[in-house]
Computed example of a mutant assay.
Amino acid sequence: MSKRDYYEVLGVDKGAAERDIKKAYKKLAMKYHPDRTQGDKALEEKFKEIQEAYEVLTDSQKRAAYDQYGHAGVDPNRSGFGGGGAGADFGDIFGDVFGDIFGGGGRGGRQSRARQGADLRYNLELTLEEAVRGKDVEIRVPTLVGCDVCDGSGAKKGTKPTTCPTCHGNGQVQMRQGFFAVQQTCPTCSGRGKIISDPCNACHGQGRVEKTKTLSVKVPAGVDTGDRIRLSGEGEAGENGAPPGDLYVQVHVREHKIFTRDGSNLYCEVPLSFTAAALGGELDVPTLDGKVKLKINPETQTGRMFRLRGKGVKSVRGGAVGDLMCKVVVETPVNLSSKQKALLEEFQASMGEGKQAAKHRPKEHGFFDGVKKFFDDWTN
């Protein structure tokens, strides 16, 4: 007998989102679950079909195989994906869908599991030079580590935790509410599955103690603000001997007095004297490797950008070394003496007026000619 299309079984479209599939399954499961159908074999088979469709369509890998190959793609005898729910336990899958309503656990709650330790974050501030070149730094991190006295068990040395008599080591107890089987955290052992009758004096039965660890962190060259360095297993110790979490070192590069970084390029502003801008010359420009000479062409305007190739940064992600972009800013002379002011007035007069002056200041005269034309057009 050929199987029905799984989407048809659940009454959803092929492109349905997972939340819509779960919603459709909940509605059908409440109607056809064996606790409600009172041993009707036909309806029980229908529920198995619904359950099988749900298992496949909520598993991204199985669903992709089904969409491409149909039932053959999820047939345990013909593929590596595993079959549907014909041989699965009703309570497991039913609990997966409804467990979140009552705080139950589905399959995850049927067995006591020690929780992995929490991940930690450490904010590391670096100068631009340190970030570009890389360095080894030592950091101090307050965390929870496994208790050495009891080896993380929480029990006094020479004793062992005993299996919880209420949940028999499962960490959860099951209660029935109508046709629902509700999983709840065991109130006796708080979900651990073990009872500590004689707690360790050092950690007071927690299996973990507070400690500040000193760690060496190798900062690779080229890191930037927002990059993270992962130290595996350096987070908090897990409960009941479970694996520790990880430590993530979050990089923040302090603002630099001269340079601004954008990816692999560096940017800086270089002040340029009035005379050097007009006559040209050379400037000493700072780089991360020392000073270099920058040639300034005569009649250089403020805002002009000069590129120094290969004087930027090599990113931690690879690629070529970036460039240093130097923006020149013409500096207006200040604190002038009477003689200097007189010389500038003489210079100003030497440039003439009208068309003669426009030859020396084309942008200025072009701007005001445009303004005059704008108002002439506006008034006519």
Rank of each mutant, 00 (worst) to 15 (best):
133 R>W: 13
145 V>Y: 01
233 G>E: 00
205 G>H: 08
186 C>Y: 08
206 Q>L: 11
159 T>A: 07
170 N>A: 13
162 T>R: 12
138 E>M: 01
158 G>P: 03
203 C>P: 06
192 R>F: 10
123 N>C: 05
209 V>H: 02
135 K>L: 11
187 P>M: 13
176 R>M: 12
157 K>S: 06
160 K>C: 04
151 D>V: 03
121 R>A: 14
212 T>K: 07
187 P>Q: 11
174 Q>K: 14
228 R>D: 00
196 I>W: 06
232 S>E: 05
132 V>K: 13
162 T>H: 03
175 M>H: 14
135 K>Y: 00
207 G>D: 01
192 R>K: 15
144 L>T: 04
119 D>I: 09
176 R>K: 15
204 H>F: 12
128 L>C: 14
211 K>I: 03
192 R>Y: 11
188 T>A: 15
134 G>V: 02
159 T>W: 08
156 K>P: 06
199 P>T: 00
205 G>R: 10
171 G>W: 05
215 L>D: 00
126 L>E: 08
204 H>L: 10
174 Q>R: 15
202 A>M: 03
131 A>N: 09
221 A>Y: 12
233 G>I: 03
226 G>E: 10
126 L>W: 12
216 S>C: 01
221 A>I: 10
143 T>I: 03
229 I>Y: 04
169 G>S: 08
138 E>D: 08
212 T>S: 09
128 L>A: 13
203 C>K: 00
196 I>D: 07
